[in-house]
Design a protein around this nucleic acid. Structure first.
Length: 563
RNA sequence: UGCCGGGUCGUCUAAUGGUAGGACAGCGGCCUUUGGAGCCGUAUGCGGAGGUUCGAAUCCUCCCCUGGCAGCCA
């Protein structure tokens, strides 16, 4: 029963239903074979993560396979840098394409032969129209298109012209190969779609072997067919292309996979378009593709998101055909949930306020035991150094507190976590500015944490570090990159106006000394401040931490309740 | 509105002719000297109008709202 529950944990979606029907009717001899087909023209983002988890996840569910295929049919936009980053990101997310990494360009020869076949069947023709003419003859959304004069060339002439196109006899853009379907089709994609264009561009893999490149519609379904894909899962905007996907395969009489569309991921306060993300990088609005504010997989990784948290997110958002905008709070919840189990707790002070324990002897210090992770005893304990001079968070002290403030205030007591109860005796201010320079406290030696007499209750527990033992690190706090909920809907050209100018704040924090030895990628929870991740560029000499996500701010709640 | 889609709590997502459920967000409470953690509780929803049916989120009709498509991009 429990086992059954476990198997059912993964929520089923409409694609599961399709697959299970196909399995029942033995449509593909019981096979499930998916593919993840990115174009290497940018870095992968969280939206791709949804697709990756879907494609690989479905295959895992049904003991099938998933190919990684680079849809590299447009050499002008593509680059090996992107290929490499995509491979890294898919692996990092925890998926394995085994020996099945392919490129659409692997099939250029086959695609060409098939195009010849279509020409011979009278189903494709060479068109000399200019782009403007093509557009004009295509008609509009409400009016049918018209046949152009080239449409009726003979098979022999088309064959001759197409071969010469391939051989490089014609200039870029001067001719195209088009499928001969129906210029009056209500579906614009069926109005004699272009199959090949002339592009004398160097391809990142095939170099200058080709000067004609296949269009997406011509290439994609055929690649799926070649690879024996059973379920070709793509996003909704390709829905209108499905008739064309099917048409090519039917005319060629080859193995027929089925295209299934789902709604792409939209995240609140997030821009997801690759084109826009590229602009942010090119215009230096962010540091790079892996800037921790970017919704890219590499950005999330650098920010401190874990693969588990992203996979869990992908599962929780579900898969459907309706447009959606997921609240970023759900993503943040997923990473908190995961990091809560994994991250070591440490004490750190972002905005220091000096505290002097006046009845603690100068020069004395002691080591107090602190728990590394209260949820997991196996993560052990560490020592923290207690001294006469300490730093606490500025927020944790108020000279004139509101009625429900339960941290440190003049004349009141508070517990220093893992240490003693202290009482604020006086506030030292700068004579001229009136700024609070330090706070003087006395401690009660009987209240040492863990000791028998430590049971006295105080309303607040605050964190601290020893002034003399603490080390300094750089911390980077991130806020959302966009200040509006739906930046994508901002008018074209205006969307950058909604960039949040305060999305990055750099501070120098005082932390427990062992933190300077942390390795890039390690996760910590800074007590009460958030989850932090050691940046990839961090060194022992200059430690740099990124805040993955803040903890929920529930002080107000706690204080209210304690009243 | 030419064609193709989509409308279930604030946001996602289940239930496919038989008690509208879950998650996140919200609100309330409990617990806690080391959990900004955890636990418990709670409100809010089937776009609308008809119809079929003992029974409709589910089937039918009409209406309303909404997304995509006119690259030699993918």
């Amino acid at each position: 029963m429990e086992e059954e529950l476990k198997n059912n944990e993964r929520p089923l979606n409409f694609i599961n239903e399709i697959i299970e029907d196909d399995l029942k009717t033995n449509k593909y001899e019981g096979r499930v074979h998916t593919r993840f087909p990115p174009e290497p023209n940018g870095y992968l983002h969280i939206g791709h993560a949804k697709s990756i988890c879907l494609n690989f996840g479905l295959a895992q569910q049904y003991k099938g396979k998933t190919n990684l295929r680079f849809d590299d049919t447009n050499p002008t936009k593509e680059d090996v840098e992107y290929v490499d980053s995509i491979k890294e990101d898919v692996r990092w997310l925890g998926f394995d394409w085994e020996d099945r990494m392919f490129y659409a360009s692997d099939y250029f020869g086959q695609l060409y032969d098939w195009a010849i076949q279509l020409v011979k069947k009278g189903l494709a023709y060479v068109d000399d129209s200019t782009p403007d003419e093509i557009r004009a003859y295509r008609g509009t959304l409400t009016e049918p298109g018209k046949d152009n004069p080239y449409r009726n060339r003979s098979i022999e002439e088309n064959l001759d012209l197409f071969v010469r196109m391939k051989n490089g006899e014609f200039a870029d853009g001067s001719k195209t190969l088009r499928a001969k379907i129906d210029m009056a089709s209500p579906n614009l994609n069926m109005r004699d779609p272009i199959m090949y264009r002339i592009l004398k561009a160097e391809h990142h893999r095939t170099g200058n072997d080709w000067c004609i490149y296949p269009m997406y519609d011509w290439a994609h379904g055929l690649c799926d067919s070649i690879e024996g894909i059973t379920h070709s899962i793509c996003t909704l905007e390709f829905e209108n292309h499905r008739p064309l996907y099917d048409w090519f395969i039917e005319k060629l009489e080859i193995y027929h996979p089925q295209q299934i569309e789902f709604a792409r991921l939209n995240l609140s306060y997030t821009v997801m378009s690759k084109r826009k993300l590229l602009q942010l990088v090119n215009e230096k609005k962010v540091e790079a593709w892996d800037d921790p504010r970017m919704p890219t997989i590499s950005g999330l990784r650098r920010r401190g998101y874990t693969p588990e948290s992203i996979r869990n997110f992908a599962e929780r958002i579900g898969v459907a055909r309706r447009d959606n905008t997921i609240d970023v709070a759900l993503l943040e919840n997923c990473v908190r949930e995961d990091l809560n189990k994994k991250a070591l707790r440490v004490m750190a002070i972002l905005r220091p306020l000096k505290v002097v324990i006046t009845n603690y002897p100068e020069g004395q210090s002691e080591e107090l035991e602190a728990i590394n992770n209260p949820e997991d005893a196996s993560m052990g304990v560490r020592n923290v150094t207690f001294t006469r001079e300490l730093y606490i968070e500025q927020d944790d002290f108020m000279e004139n507190p509101p009625s429900k403030f339960f941290r440190l205030t003049p004349g009141k007591e508070v517990r220093l976590r893992y240490a003693y109860i202290v009482k604020c005796e006086s506030v030292i201010k700068d004579d001229t500015t009136g700024e609070i320079k330090e706070v003087h406290c006395t401690f009660d030696p009987e209240t040492k944490s863990g000791s028998e007499k430590s049971n006295r209750k105080v309303k607040g527990t605050i964190h601290w570090v020893s002034a003399s033992a603490a080390k300094e690190i750089e911390v980077r706090l991130y806020d959302r990159l966009f200040s509006v909920e739906d930046p994508a809907s901002e008018k074209e050209g205006d969307w950058k106006d909604s960039i949040n100018p305060h999305s990055l704040e750099v501070l120098s924090a005082k932390v427990e000394p062992h933190l300077v030895d942390a390795r890039p990628g390690e996760h910590f929870q800074f007590e009460r401040l958030g989850y932090f991740n050691v940046d990839k560029d961090s060194t022992k000499e200059k430690p740099v931490f990124n805040r993955t996500v803040a903890l929920r701010d529930s002080w107000a709640k706690i204080e209210k309740k304690s009243n």
